[in-house]
Amino acid sequence: MRRRSHPARYLLLACTLPLVLLALTILGAILALGLELSAPALASAVGDEELAFALQLSLKTSLLSLLLALLLGIPTGYLLSRSRFPGKALLETLLDLPMVTPPLVAGTGLLFLLGRSTPLGQGLSNLGLELLFSPAGIVLAQTYVAASIVVRSARAAFDRVDPDYAAMSWTLGLAPGWTFLLVEIPMAAPGLAAAAILGWARALGEFGATLMLAGATRLHTETLPMAVFLNIASGETERAVACALILLALAATLLIAMRLLAWAGKREATA
């Protein structure tokens, strides 16, 4: 039997060109990075103190930032999903702003808000909270950019849960708080997990706002993106490439985790 071809085969064929171009560019950038690193350089990078510091600081700050972003973003996303109020569209636009603002601009804004010469900065300093040019500044910058991604994704995740499930749970005797924890959060879990992964990836890669708030000091506020920047600037290319490859591997792992989650969600839905 002769197989019938796709009715839009010529259109699809034409679309393969941009696809191939994009895929080759991404692959080329990854290969170029990999080829920059020689085997002896890779071996020395494994035991490099600065690289280990940057990796450790990146993981610690990004995980803490993710926790803060989830604590702020999930309730906010829930509120935006379940309520209507005047000015909601305006508020949503404001909350989305950190996603589209250049991080350097966001960092400058936060610097002027929390600088030591401002009342807020002075107040925090009096309380012993030194946010600027410290790892705390990194967490602030990462949380700032990750929270808006978490808010948007959490809102979309709760939008996919029919509010009638919550109403049913209330009639079964579960108070709204327990309904949120036992019904709505588990039902939105796949979307919330994706929100967490995206937020974590954004926090891990944060550079611009971190540079403005925490500065670029070796072995103090040196996250992985900062290490790439510092080492490229000082001509230590191989260390910069090693840091970049670690970031790349982490990002790829998070993407794979997201795909696995989506696959598991589909499997469970049809189980």
Binding site: D162, D164, Y165, A167, M168, S169, W170, T171, L172, G173, L174, A175, P176, V183, P186, M187, A189, A269
Partner: peptide, 20 residues
Amino acid sequence: LPPHRRQLGYLSQEQHLFPH
């Protein structure tokens, strides 16, 4: 009384059994 304190049973066409 809020819905969770009314001690009613509510059954609809869609059932809304919790899928998880």
